[in-house]
Amino acid sequence: MTELGINLPSLIAYLLNFLILLGILYLLAYKPIIRLLDQRAERIRESLAAADQARQEATSAREAIEEQINEARREGQRLLDQAREASDRFRSEEMDRARGEAEAFIERAHTDIQRERDAAIQEVRANFGELAITAAERVIRRSLDRQAHQELISQVLEEGGSASGNGRA
């Protein structure tokens, strides 16, 4: 044993050396590094899961957005149609109304004219009576001269004609 160099204190020194080294490396290197590796692995797993989830979310979000866009497009089309329809309806209604108003106006003008004509005729008729009476009075007061008579009548008629002409205008 001694010839081979086996030496008990050396052996014990090597054993202690190894155990101390094991202790130091365990506390200062193995434990923290393995914890770090585990942490990192955990972190990577989480990141991958998060990325996966994010990708899914993005996909679903994109689908939702496309759906919304389509919806909006349909809605817009609908509104446009509605507006066009409303404007058409409005235009036709307005035109109808304008036409109605114009007709009513014309109608009213017609009745006004009619009524004024009637009033004028009425007035002429009334004035004509008075004129006849006035003419008769004068005839009676004067001598019944045929010539004068005729002049008188024509004078009265002239006055009445101008009076009725006034009324008609």
């Binding site: 001694t2 030496n7 008990l8």
Partner: peptide, 30 residues
């Protein structure tokens, strides 16, 4: 060789200590 019971720091033991120090340094720095 040394007698089996006699204690002395041999050159091999010294280099084991050296290796120990280097190992600790290596891992602690890392």
């Amino acid at each position: 060789p040394l007698p089996i019971m006699q204690f002395a720091v041999t050159n091999t033991l010294l280099s084991a200590w050296f290796a120990t120090v280097m190992l600790v340094l290596f891992f602690v720095l890392g």
